[in-house]
Nucleic acid binder design. Structure first.
Length: 458
RNA sequence: GUGAUUGUAGCUCAGUUGGUUAGAGCGCUGGUUUGUGGCACCAGAGGUCGCGGGUUCGAAUCCCGUCUUUCACCCCA
């Protein structure tokens, strides 16, 4: 047998104590805010039924799903013909019936659909768990990563949108991030736009294209549209709308005027108006965070109402979170008309930003406070009972695990940033020598005095 | 899934047009200091050059495959 370098599968990571501390700090800040607004946690299994996952994400999503091979002799349950068949999709359901969750929305939908009779609606939950995607890893993108979702399910009230926006603002402020904007749009505004310019069938394409404006620029987007049978006049109208600046009211009025001229439903615009009015009512400072952005599309997902995305002002590099309202969350599971709104905080990107800005706590004082020098077997009765005494009084204490040279033991304390070292007194077993690593100072104490000193210091 | 890119000591990296025994810094171990850490000096250990095949008298170096890394696209957090 040859020795093989142990390695991790593509796109997954180990997290050391510092990384975990960073993440738990972030999660703590988030959940504190969520709970203040009445959200409670939910956890669901890593594994879901493959059939459900596939139903939700369709063809393109399929290649991003991690599938779990059935246990035992999965071969015996398949027919030879299916193996010879070039279409792997026929064989797959026979050899794999489970998969790893791809996001936290499907688990939510499944949970709501199966437990709706026990839930009190509107149902508010947050969920912070890893998800898995068989994507090719890339900068800041992994095959296993945390998602942090919060949703309100079961009401169409626009107060949800207001509440979500407040939570976003409070969360980012509590993290020490203030230079962000919440881009706001309404999915039905986009639907109406393509309808007016008579390209209603191209809504998905249209959304996917204008979503790229940030990345490839307005001119390139216009070129793509024009190559796809959008007329020059229409493109100009869109451009005017997208680039229209002014107060929120100005922007909304401009769009509303255009809709009225074309005899279109203006309720989506009024929705945004109301949301902003409410926010303004609570505190004008809050509405200042909002930026109406008619180019925001949020991919080709299931959103049907207001949509939002958080970006840093003046910095490129992806959003820190996004979400919006959806009307058909549980429809595939036989539960119709469950409107809801969800928002997902981009944990990984937020951590990245916070690390770059040094907004995260360092783990310096997390570990052992006191190292007890190991003087060998004969000293164990004294040393071990001292350790027991100290640790029962909540002092983080450890003994060097081998009776080696003092130099080595002190060096261990030094490298692990342990601030105090205790050595036996060479005259009396009733006294101990406490050494402060930062200045080398040594003082003789009794057991009780040691505790007093340490408790006062730590 | 498409197109590029990377891989040499525990870590970060040198290594000439293919040429004897593959180097440095940091880290590690030991010593100067035989019970007192950081600093300094001295010494030492540690590599089948990602893996497999090919070209060649000869390959870390050139070619092919494969895995891995990073990046762009698709899509997305």
């Amino acid at each position: 047998m040859s020795i093989q370098k142990p390695m991790l599968p593509k796109g997954v990571r180990d997290f050391d104590h510092q990384a975990i501390l960073y993440r738990s700090y972030l999660i703590k800040q988030c959940t504190t805010v969520f709970q203040k607004y009445g959200f409670l946690p939910l956890e669901t299994p890593a594994v879901e039924c493959l059939a459900l996952l596939q139903q939700k994400y369709g063809e393109e999503g399929d290649q991003l799903l991690f599938k779990i091979l059935n246990s035992g002799d999965f071969l015996s349950k398949t027919s030879k013909g299916d193996w010879l068949n070039t279409d792997h999709k026929k064989l797959l359901p026979q050899i794999a019936e489970k998969g790893l969750r791809y996001d936290l929305t499907l688990p939510l939908a499944r949970y709501v659909a199966t437990h709706h009779h026990q839930l009190t609606f509107p149902f508010k939950r947050y969920q912070i768990q890893p998800v898995w995607r068989a994507d090719r890893p890339q900068k800041g993108r992994y095959r296993e990563f945390y998602q942090c979702d919060m949703d309100i399910v079961g009401t169409k009230s626009l107060l949800c949108e207001v509440e979500i926006l407040l939570i976003i603002i409070h969360t980012f402020e509590s993290l020490g991030i203030q230079d962000f904007k919440i881009q706001l749009n309404h999915r039905k505004i986009l639907t109406t736009l393509v309808k007016i310019i008579e390209h209603a069938d191209k809504e998905v394409f249209f959304c996917a294209t204008i979503d790229k404006i940030d990345k490839i620029g307005m001119d390139n987007v216009c070129k793509i549209l024009s190559n796809n049978h959008f007329s020059t006049t229409d493109i100009q109208v869109l451009k005017n709308l997208f680039q229209y600046t002014g107060t929120h009211t100005d922007q909304l009025d401009y769009c509303q005027q255009y809709f009225i001229e074309n005899q279109q439903d203006i309720r989506p615009i009024q929705d945004l108006q109301k949301i902003l009015q409410h926010l303004e009512m609570i505190n004008p400072r809050y509405s200042a965070y909002i930026a109406i952005d008619y180019t925001l599309a949020r991919g080709l997902s299931y959103y049907t109402g207001p949509i939002m995305e958080v970006v840093l002002t003046g910095e490129q590099g992806g959003s820190l979170g996004g979400g919006g309202r959806y009307d058909h969350l549980t429809e595939n599971f036989g539960l119709k008309d469950t409107s809801g709104i969800g928002f997902s905080f981009g944990i990984e990107r937020i951590l990245h930003v916070m690390e770059a800005r040094k907004l995260l706590p360092k783990a310096t004082q997390q570990g052992t406070q006191v190292l007890v020098i190991n003087d060998g077997l004969k000293a164990y009765p004294i040393i071990l009972s001292l350790m027991d005494f100290l640790s029962h009084h909540a002092v983080a204490v450890e003994i060097y695990l081998e009776a080696v040279r003092l130099k080595k033991q002190l060096n261990y304390a030094h490298k692990k940033n342990i601030p105090y070292v205790i050595m036996l007194h060479d005259q009396s077993p009733l006294f101990f020598v406490l050494k402060e690593m930062k200045n080398g100072q040594q003082t003789v104490y009794t057991k009780e005095d040691l505790l007093h000193f340490l408790c006062a210091k730590i």
